[in-house]
Amino acid sequence: MSLTTNNRIAVNTRITTTESKPVIGLLLIVALTYLVLFLGLPLYAVFHEAFSKGSELYWSALKEADALSAIKLTLLVAVIAVPANLVFGIAAAWAIAKFEFKGKSLLITLIDLPFAVSPVVSGLVYVLLFGAQGWLGPWLMEHDIKLIFAVPGIVLATIFVTFPFIARELIPLMQAQGRDEEEAAVSLGASGWQTFWRVTLPNIKWGLLYGVILCNARAMGEFGAVSVVSGHIRGLTNTMPLHVEILYNEYNFVAAFAVASLLALLALVTLGVKSLVEWQAQRSGEPLHGAH
């Protein structure tokens, strides 16, 4: 394209396909006001409230025994739930993206199912299965196994609500990449695992990381599902979000917001890493998402 036509298009573009200055200003103000009111201000207020009575009270709220055990439980739950869903995500994506079989699109739809279920219902289904009144309740009681109102129930409910995160990230990505590279590796004599570690994994690493971060944020922050199965036993079955609720309902606002500020920090780190991953993927030219 010659320089003159280029210039003409540029001039035209300015005249015809952008709004007048006042309109641009108005739209910018509306959009930014909306985001500040609904995102910026709440985020700032969490930290403001947490430090409103000084940093000494802030730290003592975090060092308190129940807060510490809530932090530990939250970490424990994430350490189990995220790897479990990671293994599932990889297995599901491998089967779906690298092979043709009947019922594939049904399976893809079904994997998203937990996203459509209210968190409260996600917790309830495990109470119905394992609770004292549930299907397996009497058998579990006989063998002195407690799943509901105990840590295993919390882990299960968390796995349920975070179930699709990694799989739905990997499936479209691996489908878009096809299977040529893997087929080449296998035909050159690589074993299945070698192919996966050396060919597939490097290709999907950013998408994988992306899914893991989002899965982790939800696993640590889940409230509704966990609340139903937890039984709210302080120091034993309270995760951080549940601990925030208890403190808030006791009008212990500084402590509630202190624990909440840790969760807000987690959210900020999540957003930061997410942006970093998107930027890295863009820079290296590897697509982060498959064709949706």
């Binding site: 985001l35 207020a45 969490v46 922050g221 969760l263 959210a267 957003l271």
Partner: peptide
Amino acid sequence: KLVDALVDLPFALPTAVAGIVLATL
């Protein structure tokens, strides 16, 4: 870029935190 990243905050912020801070505001 910052504003764009912040749009996803509701996905990352635990709902209980959103609940207590909005109730306070």
